[in-house]
Amino acid sequence: MGPGDGESIVLGTTRMRVLGDGGHTGHRLAIAESILAPHTQGPPQHRHAQHGEGFYVLSGTVRFTVGDEDLRP
């Protein structure tokens, strides 16, 4: 994929670019690039029944909430 390829989605102050929607992996693996503005709340807590979710943070810091616990990797 090139810099202009993939589906672009804007969700408030978050910009996402879908690089792979899982259509070739039985929806077990999808890849998206997300750019979040500082202090973005992100999505509500949720769970994926069919797959896990991973993150690779290139700059800045993020906070994940699992149950009542805040994690700052």
Rank of each mutant, 00 (worst) to 15 (best):
A37E: 15
V10N: 10
D5M: 07
R72A: 13
M16T: 01
H46D: 01
I35L: 13
M1V: 07
V66E: 11
E7Y: 04
G42M: 06
T14S: 11
L29S: 03
R28G: 06
I31S: 03
H39R: 12
T61F: 00
D70P: 02
T40Q: 13
Q45D: 03
S59E: 15
F64M: 14
G60E: 09
T13G: 03
R17C: 01
H46S: 05
E69M: 05
M1H: 06
Q50A: 14
G20S: 15
G42K: 07
D68N: 11
T25E: 05
H39T: 03
E53L: 06
V62F: 10
L29K: 05
M1D: 04
L36A: 13
I35T: 15
G6Q: 08
P43M: 09
T40I: 00
G23V: 06
A32R: 09
H51Q: 10
S8G: 01
V18N: 02
H51L: 14
T14F: 01
E7S: 07
S34R: 04
R63Q: 07
G23P: 00
Q50V: 06
T14H: 02
P3N: 11
D70K: 10
L29R: 07
E33C: 03
Y56E: 04
G23T: 15
E7T: 14
H27S: 09
R15D: 07
G60M: 10
P44G: 00
L11S: 11
H46F: 08
I35N: 10
H27T: 05
G12N: 14
I35Q: 13
L11E: 14
V10Q: 14
H48E: 09
F55N: 00
T40G: 11
V62T: 07
L58A: 11
I31A: 04
R28Q: 14
V10L: 12
V10S: 10
